[in-house]
Simulated scan of single mutants.
Amino acid sequence: MHIAPYENQNKPIVDADDPMVPLNYFNIVKLKQGEAFEYQVPGYETCIVPATGTVDVDVEGVQFAMLGNRGEDVWDGEPEGVYAPVGAKVQIVCASDHTEVFIAGARYDKVLDPFDVRQHDLVQYGSDDTKTHRKIKHILGQKQHDKVGRLLVSELFTVGQGGWSGFPSHKHDTNRLPDETRHDETYNFRFKPNWGSGLQMLQREDNEPGDAYHIMDGSTVCIDKGYHPCCVLPGYEMYYFTILGGLTQRSLVQYFQPTHAYQIETIPGIKDMIAKFK
């Protein structure tokens, strides 16, 4: 499902118990210097990631100062995040002139400890020849596996202009280990320049026609089931904030579309990328 860009007024874009992606939670919070935002999401662990600006975060009295270093947009600096346990009371205070903050969440039933992530885990793969060149910055990834319940949070950037992402096409909508896990997924897209755009495909069955959504700067896409590659127009760079929430485990097992699975062998570094979603 595509949710067109809109001013959400700091209210969840994907709320708890969403009918399409109940394992996910997503909010965008915009603040000016000195303004505060408080939230609490029962039944969900969350992660605070400034898209731009700097914030001070308080999680049940545990303080994380000066989170975020990006200026104009998500390309202007490196991501940082704070993990907040299930149902925790969180306060975010803007420490810069203004800020835009992503709040990602996944359903979970145990309370863990809060922590911050000041250095991401980078994976770069693909090639210009295969039109799949991109890099992923993991905020809650493999390195945080023992500290998080079901939530995976990352940022994906195309390398260069134009090209495809999420290919070879894959899905993760059914629990049938060892072949696949059920993970709901939510994206928020940005483009550089910001008048760029792209296309999100969603193919429910192999070799059957699917759906396509025109995505723009600020678009949110919720993936409940099906194969879901996306692409960006030539001449533009694409970014998407990625939230994955697992039903029974955190580690993601992707099932690659049989028609295209052989192309895993043609894309440099993709096997390392797959291994990082654990």
Rank of each mutant, 00 (worst) to 15 (best):
Y44P: 09
Y44L: 06
Y44H: 05
Y44W: 06
Y44Q: 07
E45T: 10
E45Q: 14
E45N: 13
E45M: 08
T46L: 13
C47K: 00
C47M: 12
I48Q: 03
I48N: 02
I48F: 02
I48T: 14
I48L: 08
V49L: 13
V49P: 00
P50M: 08
P50C: 08
A51N: 12
A51T: 01
A51P: 01
A51H: 11
A51S: 10
T52S: 12
T52C: 08
T52E: 05
G53K: 04
G53Q: 06
G53T: 07
G53W: 05
T54Q: 09
T54D: 00
T54L: 01
T54C: 12
T54R: 08
V55D: 03
D56N: 14
D56S: 14
V57K: 00
V57W: 00
V57A: 00
V57C: 00
V59H: 06
V59G: 06
V59C: 09
V59L: 08
V59R: 04
E60T: 05
G61W: 06
G61N: 07
G61M: 04
V62T: 14
V62W: 00
V62N: 10
V62I: 11
V62S: 07
Q63K: 15
Q63W: 00
Q63P: 01
Q63T: 13
Q63N: 13
F64M: 02
F64P: 03
A65Y: 08
M66L: 11
M66I: 01
M66S: 13
L67V: 15
L67R: 05
L67C: 09
G68R: 04
G68S: 10
G68M: 08
N69L: 02
N69F: 04
R70K: 14
R70T: 06
R70V: 07
R70G: 04
G71P: 11
G71W: 07
G71Q: 09
G71T: 05
G71M: 06
E72T: 15
E72C: 09
D73L: 09
D73N: 14
V74E: 11
V74P: 09
W75Q: 06
W75S: 11
D76L: 05
G77W: 13
G77D: 09
E78C: 09
P79K: 04
P79Q: 08
P79L: 06
E80C: 11
E80N: 07
G81P: 10
G81K: 01
V82P: 00
V82A: 02
V82C: 03
Y83K: 09
Y83W: 13
A84S: 15
A84Q: 01
P85H: 05
V86N: 13
V86W: 00
V86H: 02
G87Y: 06
G87P: 14
A88L: 09
A88W: 11
V90C: 05
V90P: 07
V90Q: 02
V90D: 01
Q91P: 02
I92H: 01
I92E: 03
I92V: 15
V93P: 01
V93L: 04
V93H: 00
V93I: 15
C94T: 07
C94S: 15
C94Q: 07
C94L: 09
A95K: 14
A95V: 13
A95Q: 15
A95C: 11
A95E: 13
S96R: 03
S96F: 12
S96T: 05
D97R: 11
D97G: 15
H98G: 12
H98D: 12
H98L: 10
T99E: 03
T99A: 15
T99Y: 02
T99G: 07
E100F: 03
F102C: 10
F102A: 10
F102H: 13
F102R: 04
